[in-house]
Design a binder for these strands. Structure first.
Lengths: 223, 223
DNA sequence: TACTGACATCTCAGTATCTGGGACGCAAGG
DNA sequence: CCTTGCGTCCCAGATACTGAGATGTCAGTA
């Protein structure tokens, strides 16, 4: 997913930013997540703070800064864990939280079933915006047209906006279905999408009928 | 204003980002605005594109990319010029458009009276978020508390949210008053603040009574 | 109370990366 | 056809960045 741009310092700085966005907040955690040396991680984090891409809490923990579209959404990750766990228990399917990152969507929090037939999406995985119900939601609620090669149309996205949730059947992966709903932050800004996903055998070709209510409730709780 | 962070490549990359945000779109304009060599500007801009901080239009023009909070707002600047000119003519005061940049607000477009007693804020000037009606608006509509040393309180900001506009009297500068209203972008995301400002003698201690209507209309036109 | 371990911050010699002058390609205008 | 301006790319040389290690701080424990 993450590419190298030919400017090494920028590549490393972006590793640090992405680590913060996917839940690392201490310097040690950033160092671990990025694979950089501690001195380099520290120097880059402080420089990113000067330029308002990162900010620091009173206890020294790193957060997304005001220049980034993800600013102010770190607390969302902390609140997501119990909500996704409950959604998993209520629906009997794996639950995830996705956030947009350019033309990808990244799984930033997850509650997996742990055993049995299930769809597992590990935290940190980046998926394209061309397939899946979370992609539909992230596009529909930010007035973005479907990208080239998308498995859905603008008409589908209009329907998603009307209904408030999206479903997918064998879009990202054969035999997998999913339901997603949008999560909003301050001043109704879209910050992510909550999803459940699982085998088509259980979820049927109309997974929304089974689980849209629970997914909407979880999304509302995080909004 | 812009500081150096100790990481030179990052400092230069931010110069490029800021140049795009304040209206430079061609490579030549970026080179001019940043003072970097053409090869360096090009290499950094392409690297920023890879990491989604910049994006390119079909004709090669550079825009803010999806990682930035200013993504999608470049067209705003182009539409602002005639709207601010009209606001200036209708109110008889200088008009500006401010955008937040961390703990500063930057004047990104302006229509000045040109002569006579007036408040002039040149494009590019960065002002603190502790004073002025634009600061109140930018804080109030992004659920941000007043910074330390602010000339207003959280209570003032609540009132601004209720009323939809803010005014200031001798906050940023003695003898100057102003009125501001929020500008929203896609999915109701706050993207800036429209203002008129001028001498206290003309605007009185209640500048909102005189000009809130016109400022709100201009802000709505840009939203 | 003193020690230990983990973490954050800082330094600076060595080196890997970045720089920018200039070459090249393209397109528009005279 | 020639000139000019712009965007893209190359690569020798310069310098900014790296990271091992020193230092400081603090919480936990013996």
């Amino acid at each position: 997913m993450e590419q190298t741009s030919g400017v090494g310092v920028l590549d490393k700085a972006v590793l640090v930013l992405d680590a913060v966005q996917t839940g690392a907040h201490s310097l040690a955690a950033l160092t671990q997540a990025t694979g950089l040396s501690r001195a380099t991680t520290h120097r880059l984090a402080v420089a990113l703070e000067v330029h308002q891409f990162l900010t620091r809490e009173g206890d020294g923990r790193w957060r997304s800064g005001p220049r980034l579209v993800t600013s102010g959404t770190d607390a969302l990750l902390e609140r997501a864990a119990p909500v996704l766990a409950r959604l998993r228990d209520v629906t009997g399917e794996s639950a995830q939280l996705y956030r947009r990152q350019g033309d990808l969507r990244v799984c930033v929090a997850a509650a997996d079933l742990g055993s049995g037939l299930r769809d597992t999406v590990p935290v940190g995985v980046a998926l394209p915006m061309t397939a899946g119900s979370a992609a539909q939601v992230l596009l529909a609620f930010s007035a973005t047209e479907p990208p080239d090669g998308a498995a859905f149309t603008e008409r589908t996205l209009a329907e998603v906006r009307r209904r408030g949730w999206a479903h997918s059947v064998a879009e990202r992966e054969q035999g997998v279905a999913s339901v997603s709903a949008p999560v909003f932050g301050a001043d109704n800004r879209l910050v992510g999408a909550v999803s459940v996903s699982g085998p088509l055998k259980r979820l049927t070709r109309q997974p929304g009928r089974l689980h849209a209510g629970a997914v909407l409730a979880a999304a509302k709780e995080l909004s």
